[in-house]
Write a protein that binds this DNA or RNA. Structure first.
Length: 556
DNA sequence: GACGGCTCCAAA
DNA sequence: AACTTTTGGAGCCGTC
């Protein structure tokens, strides 16, 4: 191995896989800085571990293809560049629109990541083996402005966090989960039949509705049965049924709640997703247009219902530290717009209370509702009505989201704080707008065009806030990951405090009990770091609600 | 029987 | 709780 460990100037190390093994190329920002080496796939983990001592930034096509195998062999890396994720950002950002990368023909770097092979295929050569990661890396460095470079490293750090969380898994007590199911639904039934308590509630439904053969899982049948019972319903949505006062409604609502638990997080879910006391969800960094993560399998880790969080239990002698960024999106809006009044409103811990104290609205609930309306583009209802008052008190903040909405309505791109660009509307959308603009357009067409334009405007309005909040969360995670690694010293990931769960504005760390307070401090510090990275010296606070608990159900 | 669209509900 | 954003998944139901 003559890719010398610690050689000066070797800031990046590019990994490329081919049919014979892996080529390791040391680089700096613009050029190859050393002699490429080839190692066999079996030798790679040891080679990476050795080179990691000089703390390079590992450059690879796709973190989800390289890192799980390294982790499985006990190799952790500090930094990386995930070329595919970064390519997607640079291809679409207004800040890199004139770069060679963005103006190039569509190429394989634009295609979504291939499905990660289930277990350990040890760096199998995929369809992308022909792509040259070194060339792509140089194109990317050339395209990235300083702001974009920050976004690219946050995005890549997120990919490392995701892989490490998937590796560690979320502590999950199958016995606790099972007890909850038995208590709520009855003992596990034979496949094809309903649990006893559910069956019992169903008999109540059937007799109250005088429909002995009713299949409650069929919305169509249920609506018909309710109408026969004299009720006027448009659908079987819970919120609609709740408005109705009739003896058949309570058992239906109970049944629906139970059916949801059974199908989404019942025994089948437990069998399929929990092994060895851990739930290993699949996170998909950059999986959402706004830059949020998506999740796959396991019912979607990002939709983990509060109802079953009691089954997330820390190991003996360990704790869960659960941190939630309070009122994140309104604070993000305050930061993006540098609206001094709104920044000020958030300085005393409760931003909504701060809004009330200016007299813009009367109650905290109104403040919350008005802010949601501002960020989502509410047109009707209470939040629509409250918007004008908000706009008078916080003109800069509201102007920012309004401008994003207008840009979207014109079919333009908008961007987050760090430069992630929104997608453009479809060709169909453009055609409709063009048609509506022409003289002979009919009333129906222009009404449809206006409606679609407003819909896209609501999307772009929300995009800048949701997307910037996602950037904040990436910076938060990246900074915390670094701090936890320092805390761990020479211990392996799962032997010391480590991240186990992420849900948009919430993080969970699993740690030995004696580390819990240090972890809480690190989480708060990381939140402050993230705020500074995005918004500089603006006196904007990102308070966390932190709970040190034995099980996730105890947090909030 | 496979597949896609629809409904409903979980999360932020 | 709907209004208004982004998602994932289960089950039903009609079509092929």
């Amino acid at each position: 191995m003559s890719v010398a460990t610690g050689r000066l100037g070797c800031v990046y190390v590019v990994l490329a896989s081919d049919s014979e093994g892996v080529v390791i190329t040391p680089c700096d920002e613009r050029t190859v800085s050393g002699v490429p080496e080839r190692v066999s796939r079996a030798e790679l983990p040891a080679a990476v571990a050795r080179l990691e001592r000089s703390r390079p930034r590992w450059v690879w096509d796709d973190t989800s293809r390289w890192y799980p195998s390294l982790l499985a062999r006990g190799v952790r890396v500090e930094r990386c560049v995930d070329l595919r994720l970064c390519h997607a950002i640079l291809r679409n950002s207004p800040l890199s629109a004139s770069s060679a990368l963005a103006t190039a023909e569509v190429n394989p770097w634009d295609s979504p990541a291939a499905d990660v092979p289930a277990e350990d295929t040890l760096f199998e050569v995929g369809v992308d083996a022909a792509l040259d990661p070194v060339a792509e890396f140089f194109l990317q460095r050339q395209a990235a402005s300083p702001k974009l470079a920050l976004l690219l490293s946050a995005e890549s750090a997120g990919a490392l966090v995701a892989a490490e969380m998937m590796f560690a898994g979320l502590p999950w007590r199958a016995d606790v989960h099972d007890a909850l199911l038995v208590r709520t639904l009855g003992p596990r039934p034979v496949p094809g039949s309903r649990p006893a308590i559910m069956e019992h509630v169903l008999t109540e439904v059937r007799s109250a509705a005088r429909a002995p053969d009713l299949n409650p899982d069929s919305p169509g049948e249920l609506v018909k049965a309710l109408r026969r019972a004299g009720l006027t319903v448009e659908s079987t949505r819970s919120w609609e049924l709740k408005k109705i006062d009739h003896p058949v409604i309570p058992p239906i609502l109970r049944y629906k709640k139970m059916a949801r638990l059974l199908s989404a997080n019942g025994w089948n879910w437990l069998d399929a997703n929990v092994r060895g006391g851990r739930f290993h969800p699949e996170y998909v960094p950059g999986g959402v247009v706004t830059g949020r993560w998506a999740s796959k399998g396991g019912g979607g880790a990002l939709q983990l219902p509060k109802q079953i969080r009691g089954a997330v239990v820390a190991d003996a002698g360990w704790k869960l530290v659960v941190a939630d960024a309070s009122q994140l999106e309104p604070r993000i809006l305050a930061g993006m717009s540098a609206d001094r009044g709104m920044v000020e409103a958030g300085s005393a811990g409760d931003l909504y209370a701060g809004i009330v104290s200016t007299g813009a609205v009367h109650t905290r609930e109104q403040a919350k509702s008005a802010m949601l309306g501002a960020m989502y583009g509410a047109t009707s209802g209470e939040s629509g009505r409250l918007m004008p008052a908000l706009a008078r008190t916080y003109p800069q903040a509201i102007a920012l989201v309004e401008a994003a909405a207008r840009a979207g309505e014109r079919g333009e791109k908008v961007a987050t704080r760090l430069g992630r660009g929104s997608p453009l509307p479809s060709a169909r959308w453009r055609d409709l707008q063009t048609q509506a603009a022409s003289d002979e357009s009919r009333e129906g067409i222009s009404a449809a065009a206006r409606s679609e334009a407003r819909t896209w405007g609501r999307f772009t309005r929300n995009f800048i806030v949701q997307g910037t909040a996602a950037e904040w969360a990436l910076c938060w995670m990246a900074s915390l990951r670094k701090a936890l690694h320092l805390l761990a010293g020479d211990l392996w990931i799962t032997e010391s405090a480590h991240l186990v769960f992420f849900m948009h504005d919430e993080l969970v760390v699993h740690c030995p009990a004696e580390q819990a307070e240090a972890v809480e401090g690190a989480m708060r510090q990381a939140a402050a770091d993230a705020g500074r990275l995005l918004f500089g010296r603006l006196p904007l606070e990102f308070p966390l609600t932190v709970a040190i608990v034995d099980d996730y159900g105890q947090a909030k």
